[in-house]
Amino acid sequence: MADLTVPSAPVIRSATTEAPATRIALVVAAFGFLSLFLFLPLVEVFLEALRNGPAAWLAAISEPDALAAIRLTLLVAAIAVPLNVVFGVAAAWAIAKFEFRGKAFLITLIDLPFSVSPVIAGLVYVILFGSGSLLGPWLKANGIEVLFAVPGIVLATVFVTFPFVARELIPLMQEQGSSEEEAALSLGASGWQTFWRVTLPNIRWGLLYGVLLCNARAMGEFGAVSVVSGHIRGLTNTMPLHIEILYNEYNFAASFAVASLLAGLALFTLLLKTLIELRFSGGLAPSRGH
């Protein structure tokens, strides 16, 4: 008698699709990891901040030293971000549109702040501008304060946040090539006209994205700023430094209050970034570095 087992229908699945169990496991693992290491701590920050009620929270962030720290943080970001926009656009332009000797070196150089510890970046400025350095006596004689003053904090922040704009724009500009610029030039546009009317509109969303990331980092930078700031309350303390000082004084409530404000700024930045992505996903480079 013949074997009458019906052959089971073949499971048709596209080559890149995993079995449902694998998919669920991966998604759960990703979410689990993120909740444990990112989401829970973030929630904790806000809970701790509001432990003594909204009045205490408000008092902690409107205390003069806290206000000074907030002002300084915003000031530093307001200087460092535009500077890095100019440097970043210039560097990305040079790398994406021209061929020149030392291009690979320049790209490596742009990544340097990512690979060097921020503390080292801070120390470099101490060595460069400190009283024992070559520049130190001259600066002192001319009454220019760099270290333990706002200029030093700005410099350290610029150093640490340099790659964000450039890194965002390089792949985008490389992908776009230069044919639109060539078209503009052949139609009689000057270099500046070409930049403002053709290049900039083409990179605007990528640029905005880079600016947001750069801004988030500029406000949150701790290591490099800590080394050059000198921790002078009400003068050279940025928000992250202020948070640390409060924390070290066991003033947890105030520390977390300011921390929640900083985290809130970061979340707001992230929200903006997401909105941009949703709205203009087509204009951003598909091969993003972050």
Partner: peptide, 18 residues
Amino acid sequence: VQDRQVGFVFQHYALFKH
């Protein structure tokens, strides 16, 4: 390039997207 007054049509058009 600007002063030559040539009309150049690119292979992939190079129209201004925006």
